[in-house]
Design a protein around this nucleic acid. Structure first.
Ligand SMILES: [Mn+2]
Ligand SMILES: [Mn+2]
Ligand SMILES: [Mn+2]
Ligand SMILES: [Mn+2]
Lengths: 228, 228
DNA sequence: CAAAATTATTAGCCTGACCTAAATCTTATT
DNA sequence: AATAAGATTTAGGTCAGGCTAATAATTTTG
């Protein structure tokens, strides 16, 4: 098994690549994501690119991308992470703002046997408590058909399917407002000049919530047919 | 949190001290227990004894014992380990020969919150799947009233309460023979010259099992009043 | 397009946790 | 009491994963 640091680096590179549509990741992006010095990233990435098998393709001053071998490890760690999040939430009563931190350490130490047992106990879930997809044993991810709340048209109803990011404060705030997975919402209005987006939770209180764009960008919605 | 190595060293010292009735542990004993070189132990123990707070009392060429601070950490790790063993066995269907290896890594990464949730889910167990006592949050251990099977008198019935050691092969073998926790047994005979001990499982088959002294030494029995 | 600002790499250092080989201390044996 | 055997420590080295400070490359900007 790779070290905890190696696994966290590869996972982070995978996630940054994903956020950047496959673009090479830069040293400083990864460094600030992981909270280490730039020089530490350069050092690690150089080692990854001369490991056998090579884990990243590294072009100095340009950036790096995962090789197939590196991606495989990243996906294994992500599978662990998200299964653990599910398990903690379902079996041990964790709330969605608590699971991430615990999973961040557990992901590196569980055996394949434990992974399998948890998956089985959970009925092979395909997404975690935040709606993030769980790779299967072969590393395949299902694709959700979602758009950011910022892009949902006014009056267009939709369902919350995923929340990007793990900040506990934000997750707790959203849950308090009733903005949880599977909640049905409708955009009432979008203030101009990047102003807040006002939404209503369908079949619930009539209260209207105003969300900043930053937050709305992180809420992914599956649009549903317009029920007038 | 201390490093995984530090936690494993302190736990090992605790367990060796326990096995030696509080005698100082020697460098080579700990080295072979942990599977590292003697020089590695000397190095680690020196660091422990000059840490703040001091974790071991170290007398060169003589040995070392845990300080209160060191023992506190050891007991925390042991609590983690044994709770995890229980949890894996109860909640995820692990058998008693599988739990140890998994717990050996998980013990270092679970949060206090997870410890509490597992303990609660299990109803605050006081012993693990091998009958090893689980320290409570303050580090208190309950004491079992048991003797090794080798010391049980012929015809004296008793109950298996604990099995010392974690070798999966031995544990599997014992389970196959019906020698599990709570099994009622009776010694039929003890062969002389350190020969095997023959026992019978009460209320079960009439089969007589012959156990070597090495094995019998590891099976701890709570004697019961002689029925008959 | 040259200078300034930004970003990345290199150089050099540190700590934890290991190792082997050499030196030293302790204990047992003659 | 001297020596041999055994246990332990010291010396010196490696490797991963971090750091800071100095240097070099790239990008932005006046
Ligand atoms: Mn992690
Ligand atoms: Mn998640
Ligand atoms: Mn361990
Ligand atoms: Mn145990």
């Amino acid at each position: 098994m790779k070290s905890q640091s190696t696994e966290d680096y590869l996972k982070a590179i995978y996630q940054l690549q994903e956020m950047q549509n496959g673009e090479p990741v830069s040293t400083s992006t990864l460094a600030s994501w992981l909270g280490v010095a730039n020089a530490s990233v350069t050092g690690m990435v150089k080692r990854f690119s001369s490991a056998d098998p090579k884990l990243v393709e590294y072009e100095p001053y340009t950036g790096f991308v995962l090789t197939d071998a590196g991606e495989k490890i990243a996906l294994e760690v992500i599978r662990h992470h998200r299964l653990i999040e599910c398990y903690l939430s379902q079996a041990l009563g964790y709330s969605w703002d608590e699971v991430h931190e615990e999973a961040e350490r557990l992901e590196h130490v569980i055996s394949e046997a434990m992974e399998d047992r948890m998956a089985q106990a959970l009925g092979n879930p395909i997404s975690d408590p935040h709606g993030d997809p769980i790779p299967d044993r072969e590393g395949n991810l299902h694709q959700l058909n979602v758009i950011p709340l910022t892009q949902l048209a006014v009056e267009q109803p939709g369902t919350i399917r995923r929340v990007i990011g793990q900040e506990p404060d934000l997750l707790r705030y959203l849950a308090e407002q009733g903005l949880v997975l599977s909640a049905h919402i409708k955009v009432i209005s979008k203030a101009p000049f990047n102003g807040p987006i006002s939404i209503r939770i369908v079949n619930s209180s009539e209260t209207i919530l105003a969300l900043g764009r930053e937050v709305a960008e992180k809420i992914l919605i599956q649009p549903s047919s317009n029920t007038r």
